[in-house]
Design a protein around this nucleic acid. Sequence first.
DNA 1: ATGCCTTTGAAGCGT
DNA 2: ACGCTTCAAAGGCAT
Length: 568
Amino acid sequence: MPQLNGGGGDDLGANDEMIPFKDEGEQEEKISENVSAERDLDDVKSSLVNESENNSSSSDSEAERRPQPTRQDLENYEKAREYFSEALRRQQDGGFFKSPHYPGYPFLMIPDLSNPYLSSGSLSTGARTYLQMKWPLLDVPGSAGLKDSRASTPGHLSNKVPVVQHPHHMHPLTPLITYSNEHFSPGTPPPHLSPEIDPKTGIPRTPHPSELSPYYPLSPGAVGQIPHPLGWLVPQQGQPMYSIPPGGFRHPYPALAMNASMSSLVSSRFSPHMVSHHPHSLHQTGIPHPAIVSPAIKQEPNQGHLSPSMHSKSPAPVKKEEEKKPHVKKPLNAFMLYMKEMRAKVVAECTLKESAAINQILGRRWHSLTREEQAKYYELARKERQLHSQLYPGWSARDNYGKRKKRKREKQQPDGESEDQFSSRNKKPCTQYMPPDKMCDSPASSHGSMLDSPATPSVALASPAAPAATHSEQAQPLSLTTKPEGRAHHPHFSLSSKPQGPSPSSALSLSIGSPGSQSPHILSRPIPFSSLQHAMLTPPTSFHQAALHSHHALLQSQPLSLVTKSAD
DNA sequence: ATGCCTTTGAAGCGT
DNA sequence: ACGCTTCAAAGGCAT
């Protein structure tokens, strides 16, 4: 579990203030990080200048394709450097910046220099745009380097940065808030900030595909188009993939998001105007905002097509307007944030890759978090909603509501099939989605798997920071790992059933633990519901009574974790 | 190429 | 007010 800011989270409301380091060692570490970041910027500048100088004579085709840095580019660099100096100075003063966006979370974001999308104006495709400069108070899990076995440095020392996610999978706010530190750790300078210089050309060489981080999901064809690491300073020319929109896109101030004093700028930058007036998610400044998924770049399936219903009801201009309207996604809720952060960890620990299975695991782990742990995510989610509403004042979840389903309906229901018919036809039985040989984290792995065995047995169902209305079970002394919001209809036996419907193969998983145990579960392997169905559906049987008895007994002494899926 | 699966939580919608 | 539905992320898998 990452420790956010010492685990306190109480200073979330603070804004751009200095946070004392926990100890001198930490401070030194952070300072050295920034020193090296600053040094890296110098390197970058050198390479920039070198490139500029060599460009005319270089025979390197890559270099030829690249435009020469302009005065503006260099100015931008200087500004960025200025910021780094300031950051460094403040660190040396004994603190570090908080994010202007999430002031409670001390990390700096710098533009991802190696992000091909950054220089392209196609940020809205979802490329992670900013690099996390540091997240000093988070413990960095060993998975940092897990995804890149080619790393020359150990995972915990490497600076793998999850800069780019799959474009269509990035959360709008991800560039502003990096929730996960999984792939980032302090220490060595980021590769993209200290680009390897090609001895021939004197310019940073394009990384070999095998050296590319797996977080750069570039297609083989795209690899050759990887832009200059200083893409934000050196826009690519003649590259349709990263084409610069009319008006040009030169990132004017990459360090913008880092600078506390610029938070006002940031807010103006990400004003809603860009939403309505910049179909390509470009602000007046020319900065595309990744929070917006421009339909021109990323379209939800069929979004661009006119539905029959729309055809009949909406006049063309409205449709056109709607088409152009960028798709602003919902802010992530606490669990989504948790998933985002923990997914890689779970994937690394298990052999699982299927998200559905991973999500089941994460769901269980979420329930096993302590109240304090969950509170962090609720608070983050709250902040995110807050930020989202600031960025998009006029936005409502309604904007996206029904879009997907409507599209689905339009596609699958052209003949006017009734809604009920459609629904029933498309419902799938609720089954345990877990490959049998991959039960890495069933509540039962329990045989000591660390995955689902929180140090603190589930005490908390909800966070104090969570909306009270949705977490009425806070006061319960024991965790039944039921869903909040009263989704579990059996408070004592916690047979929560999903409305999805019948399934003969639903499973019941039971986990019972003892306080303080690292692997507290006595029985937590999912039990095929078919084997329990009878017992469950009939009035108190021996099983039922035994279970209830166990539960009541445990109520007195032991925490109980019970996750069920029922078949009704 | 597209949608499903699976999770929780927030918010919209309908009654 | 309440309950149901949709969407947010993720990526393998099925169609």
